[in-house]
Amino acid sequence: MPRGDRYRNAEHLPNLRAGRRAPPAATLPRQRRGTTPQMVGRYPDYDVMDSAHTWDAATRRVVEARLRPRPGRRFFSDDEADTARALCDTVTAQDRDPRIPVMLMVDEKLADRRFDGYRYEDMPDDDQTWRLVLRGLDEVAQRRYGAPFARCAEDAREAICEQFSRGVLQGRVFDQLNCKRAWTVVTRAILAEFYSHPWAWNEIGFGGPAYPRGYMRLGEGLREPHARPEAVHDDPVRELTPPAP
């Protein structure tokens, strides 16, 4: 079956695949315009920043600031930063450059104490939860693999995160921490930073800020004049090249 039909049939979606796993990232279209995390995405010719001149000044200031180099780290210590970076990149599957600097974005948020307006009664403040989680991850990794979390191989980190997401990690830290809630606290912060970044918008084909321009084609299957089509097929050259023996 042509790859386009398989895509329309949603065969790439984890719920419909064995083990609820995504297909390998190598089968994704490569980005040709703008930047996406790991330079893959469904919209290879789309760069949301091409529309930046149509945005209002306040929005433009906020979004463009995310593309500038981040100021130095203020919240995480050196050791914590390694673990935090590994956790952020594992949760968002950032296995190579270009990477969205999620750890530094979270660091800024925690250093500024920009919390979300609530705390579970059995949990400390979000910044303390982060420190505990990082200590706990290192403890589990050290016990199982004899290395801190950041030094573990990708599949080892994923195995730990898988248990973390189900709330079943054990150890000195996690026995005292509501593991399931700790997972929601850290992932909430990670995903909010990752998907606030224009590179991530390029990857998923999000229209971005649309004020004052707005949208005029609301119907299903209709595309704004400035939007770009999504892509399914791989690079045709690579597609035709027979795999190496």
Binding site: L13, V91, A93, E203
Partner: peptide, 10 residues
């Protein structure tokens, strides 16, 4: 992880 990124691209 990868599964989340896949759903996000969708």
């Amino acid at each position: 992880g990868q599964a989340l990124r896949e759903y996000m691209r969708d």
